[in-house]
Design a protein around this nucleic acid. Structure first.
Lengths: 122, 122
DNA sequence: CTAAAACCTGACACTGACGTCAGATGCAAG
DNA sequence: CTTGCATCTGACGTCAGTGTCAGGTTTTAG
């Protein structure tokens, strides 16, 4: 599977895939001429990376977490434990923050509705 | 109230306050020498702006929404209506995305726990 | 065989909300 | 008066992920 195929099947740009590799998030074997080759496994890998990006994790953080997933040792498992819980807490906090912001927006919507009905009547 | 005071009372940097003004989100009267003066009203204003930023709204979007809040007319109320609902939907979608990402992280945490207990026992 | 399309590396551009610095001015205290 | 802090404008730096271009090689289709 070439990089364009992987891009097509994941919806991620070719540029991003090369960037992921540069950041140590994604590995590829190379053809004799140097072109990247991927297996189907990498599809899930990319989607997984996208998930973590969506969670607001930075590529650096993801890179720190992945060794624990790929080849767990006592050392990296312990190191990852802290970070995993830290990120989980951050996401939870972010969700709550967004919920509050949505409430604020709902108030604006209510005000707006009032304005609109009043202005439509007036 | 000078800009440093407003910064202290809102927890927002002086730089940011000037930036908000530059973007049309915040207004100030000026002393004869040109220094910005604020009233207590601006404290709430800044906090409100921060809320919308936390919701992921861009300064441009906030600037489009504010006229409807400040001096509602039929025109800007109608224009804001669409945008308000659009942003609300976006936030909801974002929250769901974060929740999914957190689930992914929870799976990682579960895997990590297994590794740790296995490695501790082995 | 040849043209087109895909790939390579390397580098610069962009976005957005700021940080930060420079050089000048304002203002309160000793 | 002067010392020193706050403020002003203007400009450039930052981060992170990605777009995009240049210039060259490889693969594929006709």
């Amino acid at each position: 599977m070439r990089i364009g195929d992987l891009a097509a099947r994941t919806g991620v740009s070719v540029r991003s895939l090369r960037y992921y590799e540069e950041q140590g998030l994604l590995v590829s074997t190379r053809s004799p001429s140097g072109q990247r080759r991927y297996t189907d496994k990498e599809i899930d890998r990319v989607r997984f990376i996208q998930r973590l990006y969506a969670a607001g994790l930075t590529s650096r953080t993801i890179a720190e977490l992945l060794p624990c997933v790929d080849s767990p040792t006592a050392q990296n498992a312990d190191a990852a434990w802290e970070q995993l819980h830290q990120e989980r807490d951050r996401i939870t906090q972010h969700i709550e923050e967004l919920a509050r912001a949505r409430d604020a927006l709902d108030q604006l919507i209510a005000i707006n509705r009032e304005h609109r009905s009043r202005l439509a009547a007036g």
